[in-house]
């Protein structure tokens, strides 16, 4: 056995890593607070948020409103932008000092960048990309539900003797809790020791577009290679339905549309009421991202396309005339 940094007997409490950007909590951090609240209650432990950054006072209050009992805040100008070294060094200090039993993080690019590094530094187990979390009845261990092999196989993973039990969770899995601004909670500033020399990464440029969050869309119109670069009709159709446009990986790889709209294993897992899938073949790596949708409509010119196995309403046809007619139909019913 690779020795754990501390023992299960010494460990206590459920922590959520509160990823923030410019003082705003990431959506998945709020989702984790919602689920964390439920898990903490069931186990009779407080829910603690771990918040690293600069000028994150408002984010700490936001965390309490969304379910945290206690927020540990580490503030330092060197923590303002995310870097692996700064975040891993500070998180390690605080975790080793306070010894949480469980540490949950969002499976965003930076959340994963940190989680993989931290798990090895703490010599503990990491259940990555969970689609569900629960306590195991008799042992009280965290059970992380994960999917593998392109989404075809599910498994539950636990970490028996190493602490903290770490897990990352994909954005969009748990519902967003509604905030209660009156909720009481404690904000504690923790001193950090961090020097510029510890940070090997230099950030040369950083671009954030206020991208869409397709995990919250009620209606998605998704396009793949079959749209041949023209997302125009899909965008118009989505707008008429008050929805958003999504895409297969190939459509994103080809630069036809932004990566923030990618659905699937390496994109987002979505759960809209309706998804209209246009010109997408239906590989498991894609369909894992729409499994939980209410109604699935598929439009594909190939009658053998696997997407039809996963669809409620199937249209074997060229997607463009169908969309054109659909747009006309919807406009007709409008004032």
């Amino acid at each position: 056995m690779i020795p754990s940094a501390y023992s299960p007997e010494a460990a206590r409490g459920l922590w959520v890593f509160l990823e923030q950007e410019g003082g705003q909590l990431e959506g998945v951090a709020l989702e984790l607070l919602g689920k964390g609240r439920e898990l903490a209650q069931a186990r009779g432990v407080p829910l603690t948020g771990l918040l690293l950054g600069q000028g994150v006072e408002g984010a700490a209050r936001q965390a309490i409103a969304h379910g945290a009992d206690h927020v540990l805040v580490a503030e330092d100008p060197l923590l303002a932008p995310y870097t692996t070294d700064a975040y891993a060094n500070v998180a390690t200090q605080i975790v080793l000092d306070r010894k949480p039993e469980t540490l949950l993080l969002g499976a965003t690019p930076n959340g994963r960048d940190l989680a993989g590094r931290l798990a090895v530094r703490l010599r503990t187990g990491l259940t990555a990309d969970c689609t569900g979390l629960a306590w195991e009845g008799d042992t009280g261990l965290l059970l992380g539900e994960v999917s593998g092999f392109g989404g075809g196989v599910m498994a539950s993973i636990k970490c028996a003797r190493h602490r903290p039990q770490m897990a990352t969770v994909r954005p969009g899995i748990f519902p967003l809790p509604s905030p209660d601004p009156e909720r009481a909670g404690r904000i504690e500033l923790v001193p950090v020791s961090l020097e510029a020399g510890e940070i090997r990464t230099e950030i040369l440029e950083r671009v954030r577009h206020e991208g869409v969050d397709i995990t919250r869309a009620k209606v998605l119109v998704a396009g793949g290679r079959g749209v041949k670069g023209d997302f125009g009709p899909l965008t118009e159709f989505a707008r008429l339905l008050g929805g958003e446009v999504g895409a297969s990986r190939i459509a994103c790889d080809l630069g036809w549309i932004g990566r923030d709209r990618q659905i699937g294993q390496t994109g987002f897992v979505t759960r809209p009421k309706l998804v209209v899938v246009c010109g997408i073949s239906g590989a498991t790596q894609f369909t894992v991202g729409i499994k939980a949708a209410g109604l699935i409509v598929a439009i594909n010119s190939d009658p053998e396309a696997p997407i039809f196995e996963e669809a409620d309403l199937c249209v074997v046809d060229d997607l463009f005339p169908i969309l054109e007619a659909l747009i006309a139909e919807l406009k007709r019913g409008m004032p």
């Binding site: 599910m154 498994a155 539950s156 636990k158 028996a160 894992v288 669809a311 007619a325 006309a328 139909e329």
Partner: peptide, 29 residues
């Protein structure tokens, strides 16, 4: 440190797989 508890085949909800027939206009309607 981690162990796999249960393993199962992912089950997606049964889908209707209803194929719409007709001309594009009819299908769209």
């Amino acid at each position: 440190p981690t162990v796999v508890g249960a393993v199962w085949q992912a089950k997606s909800p049964e889908r209707q797989r209803r194929f719409l027939e007709g001309m594009p206009q009819e299908k769209a309607r």
